[in-house]
Design a protein around this nucleic acid. Structure first.
Length: 456
DNA sequence: TCTGGGGTCCTAAAGCAA
DNA sequence: TCTGTTGCTTTAGGACCC
């Protein structure tokens, strides 16, 4: 999907169409999750600190992500993909590989193009959003093709043309080459994919190690036979929080770790999982990050056990100077939900579990944050008189709401008191009227789509 | 107002067992 | 019994991806 989060917001908010929209964390330490193409013109891009984005595009609309809504839309798209083939491998909410050959949906360039075009139309009809399709003989190439196809396009890489196409491209095009590897290669005089080929496999292994070196060399030759894998099991579950200001108080750090442990356990149990290895993550005031882990004798999903392990791990960490982020994770996952056989690993474990189930009441000091969350920028609201709208901004005891819906004209803005009883949070409205196939548009969008090698 | 959150995979060192 | 090799597990960190 093209600029997925931002596109969803533009589709639900007519007044934002054609405008610069930035979705991401709005706190003092937020980063950009997605920028609309209009915002990218100003140089705003994913992972950029929000403050920098605001300097570059001060007049853009800044919105908090609505993951639940994006997930629901993503589900609809994934359904369309699964109708094409049982082999669908989601990479994220807005991207997936599809093995069209395995599904019998396509067997050559011609049939693949047809499927891709129809898919784009279907996605447009079902979600109202556009996206892009990349068609090629491997996952790597399909991914590159889909990048080229964005926004709102379809690109086919024809078998036999791969090497010539890749040759002049930057090494950074290859999946797995990020800033560090890119720099490493550049210092060795390698900036293009053909230079990887010229350097040879041995040199790549010498530079990057066996696994990475061999992998990249193969990619540079357009050799990639990784299969599309439908169900990949989770290998870890974790939660983490970055705090608006560094935490110095050691007691508070301990409390936060307990809260994170509880949240982690809730997620773990929600997925019906247990795990053996508990991981504590600490990012300090200077952004240095360290992890400490402990492996139990058997998997657990017990809040007391995981809390205690996290607390023990924290004991071994120096937090003087302040802490910017804390995280708790569990890996070494096992599938059973049973009461674990080894809970006594924490021998003297008391039932000091406290209020775990369901979010305990937020501490008083979080009340302002709570009010802001209730009126988070971009979230939907309903007013008893003016109807459905969304929060444009809030502060100083006021909320500004724009009253419009996906199908309406751009709407009017009104301001209310934060405590106005006529105003309440609302669920997002569907982006497309739930019609049947007849309302299918001529254009559409989709995620990255892969196709296995056609027979030679 | 410098740098989110949720993951995956790889490497290397150290301890231990065969 | 001593020494060396190999391999597995645990731990810590880093790179990368969306």
């Amino acid at each position: 999907m093209d600029a997925f989060f931002a596109s969803v917001e533009q589709a639900s908010k007519p007044s934002l169409r054609g405008k610069a929209v930035v979705v991401g964390g709005l706190g003092p330490r937020g980063v950009v999750a997605t920028a609309s193409y209009e915002a990218r013109v100003f140089g705003v891009h994913s992972a950029m600190p929000m403050g920098q984005a605001r300097r570059l595009a001060p007049n853009a609309a800044y919105l908090v992500p609505r993951f639940g809504f994006y997930k629901a839309i993503s589900e609809r798209v994934m359904e369309l993909l699964r109708a094409l083939s049982p082999l669908v491998e989601p990479l994220s909410l807005d991207e997936a590989f599809v093995d069209l050959e395995a599904g019998g949906a396509a067997w050559d360039e011609q049939s693949a193009r047809l499927v891709g075009a129809q898919l784009r139309a279907d996605i447009r009809a079902v979600t109202g959003l556009t996206g892009s399709v990349g068609l090629a003989a491997s996952k790597m190439l399909a991914k590159i093709a889909s990048e080229q196809a964005k926004p709102d396009g379809l690109v086919v890489i024809e078998p036999g043309t791969e090497r010539a196409m890749l040759g002049p491209m930057s090494v950074r095009t290859l999946p797995g080459v990020g800033p560090a590897t890119g720099d490493h290669l550049r210092r060795a005089g390698i900036t293009t994919i053909e230079e990887i080929v010229e350097a040879g496999e041995d040199e790549m292994v010498r530079l990057l190690g066996k696994s990475h070196g061999q992998g990249l060399y193969a990619m540079a030759l357009a050799r990639d036979d990784r299969p599309v894998v439908a169900e990949r099991e989770a290998k870890s579950v974790s939660v983490e929080d970055t705090y608006d200001v560094d935490i110095h108080d050691r007691v508070r750090v301990g409390l936060e770790v307990q809260r994170l442990a509880d949240r982690c356990v809730r997620r773990l149990r929600g997925a019906g999982l247990s795990g053996r290895t508990i991981v504590l993550k600490v990012r300090r005031y200077d952004f240095s990050t360290l992890t400490r882990s402990e492996t139990l004798r058997g998997p657990t999903d017990d809040a007391g056990v995981i809390r205690e392990a996290a607390a023990r791990l924290l004991d071994s960490v120096d937090t003087t100077g302040g802490v910017r982020l804390l995280g708790v994770g569990v890996s070494g996952l096992a599938d059973y939900t049973q009461e674990d056989l080894f809970a006594q690993a924490a021998g003297e474990r008391t039932e000091a579990e406290g209020p775990l189930e369901e979010d305990a009441v937020a501490p008083a000091e979080e009340q302002p944050a709570l009010a802001e969350r209730r009126w988070a920028a971009g979230h939907d609201v309903r007013h008893a008189v003016f109807g459905h709208g969304w929060v444009q901004g809030s502060g100083l005891g006021r909320v500004t709401v724009r009253f419009e819906t996906p199908g309406s004209e751009p709407g009017r803005v009104r301001t209310f008191r934060v405590g106005d009883p006529d105003l309440e949070p609302a669920d997002p409205l569907p982006l497309v009227l739930s019609r049947h196939k007849e309302s299918r548009g001529p254009e559409g969008g989709a995620g990255a789509v892969g196709m296995r090698s056609p027979a030679p």
